[in-house]
């Protein structure tokens, strides 16, 4: 059975690439369905039929969709994201800086939210039914049910307007000192942490409770193990799979789903870039952003699944 893990991992990776291919097709198809015509928007007042036809030919928009899909996919595979329709810049250049910003925000949020979520998820499961558990669970449920724009707005109201501790907008070109960086990131990170931690706490708690209900946990208690030992040695190792998946799902949100937070704090990330590009019917840019989100999502879920595979002793040796 020793060959099982590599085989499973490879086949899981295969599934990821297949999914990615299907996603690319869907993304391309979906952008074709967008209403409005990029050529007419670009030409604006000057959109005479001849000019429209000429530009369309120049932009290769007259070739069949499948051919354009093939060309686009081929370009993607070589790392060529295409050229923006709106301002003729390579999409890769436009995305690069924004992606770095998004990843920075995501990383900061991850570093704060994941340990807190794990700690709260595990401890509430350990003391389930206690006052502590009930208080945390109630707070978490309320946060899950509050839309994030409300949290963001409240954060602005409290920290920027009343307390005047933090700037209301995150976008400052001058991020030289660590203090400034901290200030600029504080509110988006707090808001995002609230949103994703709540989900993770709930999922971690559920996974831990499942594990704590198992007979081997009772057995460990009957061996005289302390509560901490029971949790760390027996319950946690067996719930790594589901916890990793819960974390991956929450984190994937940090890539594509942060548009509201980016907008409210005027943070220059990829999500905002994508929304802006929809306004200009900038198809290569929309497609690239969509593909980035999908790649991010698939990477996270794939990693989580691989962790689950590797942590399963039934597949070891």
């Amino acid at each position: 059975m020793s060959g099982q893990i590599p085989l499973l991992v490879v086949s899981r990776l295969g599934v990821t690439f297949l999914t990615l291919l299907i996603v690319s097709f869907v993304v391309f198809g979906a952008t074709l369905l967008l209403p409005g015509d990029v050529v007419e928007i670009l030409l604006g007042q000057a959109a005479t039929p001849e000019a429209v036809a000429g530009l369309r030919e120049a932009m290769h928009l007259d070739s069949p969709a499948l051919v354009r899909y093939g060309q686009w996919l081929f370009g993607l595979l070589q790392g060529d994201l295409g050229v923006s329709y709106a301002n003729n810049m390579p999409v890769a250049d436009m995305v690069a800086g924004r992606l770095a910003n998004t990843l920075r925000l995501a990383a900061a949020t991850t570093i704060i939210a994941v340990p807190i979520a794990l700690l709260l998820g595990i401890t509430t499961a350990m003391y389930r039914g206690s006052l502590y558990d009930r208080v945390i669970t109630t707070i978490v449920v309320s946060i899950v049910s509050v839309p994030e724009f409300l949290i963001a707005t409240l954060a602005v109201l409290v920290f920027a307007v009343w307390l005047r501790w933090l700037p209301a907008l995150s976008f400052t070109t001058d991020l030289s000192s660590f203090g400034q960086l901290l200030k600029a990131f504080a509110m988006p990170v707090i808001t995002l942490s609230f949103v994703i931690a709540a989900q993770m706490i709930r999922m971690t708690r559920a996974a831990m409770i499942d594990a704590l209900n198992m007979s081997y946990v009772e057995m460990a208690i009957l061996k005289g193990a302390s509560k901490t030992r029971v949790v760390l040695r027996h319950a946690l190792p067996n719930s790594i799979g589901p916890i990793a998946n819960a974390i991956a799902l929450s984190l994937s949100y940090l890539l594509g789903g942060v548009i509201i937070v980016e907008t409210i704090f005027n943070y220059p990330g990829v999500a905002k870039l994508m929304v802006d590009s929809v306004a200009t019917r900038d198809l290569p840019l929309i497609q690239s952003c969509a593909m980035i989100f999908c790649v991010g999502f698939l990477t996270l879920t794939t990693v989580a699944d691989i962790i689950a595979i590797v942590s399963n002793p039934r597949l070891r040796t």
Partner: peptide
């Protein structure tokens, strides 16, 4: 009680298949 468990009094479970931690 924790000190007593496993040393003075020990337990053989009904279903050993469930009572062993699968990951160790």
């Amino acid at each position: 009680r924790q000190k007593l468990r496993g040393t003075d009094v020990a337990y053989v479970p009904q279903s050993a298949a469930a009572a062993f931690d699968p990951s160790q």
